[in-house]
Amino acid sequence: MFIRKAKPTDCEVLFKCWLTSVQATHTFVSAEDIESMIPYVRSYLSSGESEIWVACEGSGTIMGFMGLSGSKMETLFLAPEFHGRGAGRLLVQHAKSLCSDLTVDVNEQNAAARQFYEACGFVVEGRSELDEQGRPYPLLHMRLLAGAARC
């Protein structure tokens, strides 16, 4: 496995990765809300506003991606067929190497994601009732503990 910066030609693969991941892991999000997120996600992936890093298999197949904006991990999504194979941990380790004061927001209803980030050394610092678009999906605001062990 290796990490590389996303290229403009990756956008469609990254979008499909996001969509299949959300459908598999965010069962608490309505189909209508997922549909309404699509234009935002497509814009995000093509905007260049965040650094987007891609985890690839040795063959170059994209497994997932992470968006980093300053010290905040904006996104981390893996295609479902690559869950549990270490790509998520590799992306978090890469983010840690770039920024020691790392934060991430996690949907409260996504217990597996919260457990993953806690295993990587993050702790909950706060909570919001609504997500960033004002939908009723509470967010947990997490921060990497100083000196946290590698995940």
Results as ranks from 00 to 15, higher is better:
N107A: 09
I3N: 04
A87R: 02
H26R: 05
H94Y: 15
F122K: 03
K7G: 03
F77R: 00
K16N: 15
R85Y: 01
L98W: 07
A111G: 06
G126H: 11
A113Y: 04
L98M: 14
V13Y: 05
F28D: 07
T103K: 09
D131P: 06
L68Q: 05
G70C: 12
G134N: 10
L14K: 00
M73G: 08
E74A: 10
D131Y: 08
I52D: 00
L45N: 07
S21Q: 08
C120M: 09
R135G: 09
A79F: 11
D101A: 15
V29C: 05
T9L: 13
Q115S: 15
A119L: 11
G126F: 08
A146T: 12
M66L: 10
D105W: 00
I62W: 01
M37L: 15
S46N: 11
A148L: 04
A24L: 05
L140D: 01
L14C: 03
S36C: 07
E49R: 09
E35G: 11
G64C: 03
S50C: 13
V41C: 12
C17R: 04
T9V: 14
M142I: 03
S100F: 03
S21E: 08
F15N: 05
Y40N: 04
H26E: 02
R42P: 08
I38N: 06
G60A: 06
E57C: 05
E132F: 11
S30E: 03
E12F: 02
G147N: 13
L140I: 07
E108V: 01
E74C: 06
L140A: 00
P138D: 04
G84K: 02
G64L: 02
A149P: 08
I52P: 01
F65H: 05
C99D: 14
Y44V: 13
S59W: 05
P138N: 04
S43Q: 15
C120E: 01
S36Q: 13
A146Q: 14
T75S: 09
K96N: 09
S97D: 07
C151Q: 11
A112T: 09
F116R: 06
L91C: 01
P39D: 14
L130C: 10
Q115F: 10
R89T: 14
A149H: 10
C56M: 03
K7H: 11
V123N: 13
S100W: 04
L140M: 08
T75P: 01
T61F: 06
G67K: 01
C99F: 12
S71W: 12
D105Y: 00
D33L: 10
A148G: 02
F116T: 07
Q133Y: 10
L14N: 00
P138A: 06
E57N: 09
L19N: 14
R85K: 10
P136V: 03
K72E: 05
A111E: 13
Q23I: 12
M66Y: 00
A119N: 15
L76T: 01
S100I: 06
F82A: 04
Y117N: 06
H94V: 10
E12R: 00
V22N: 01
C56R: 02
T75Q: 03
T9Y: 10
E51Y: 11
A87Y: 01
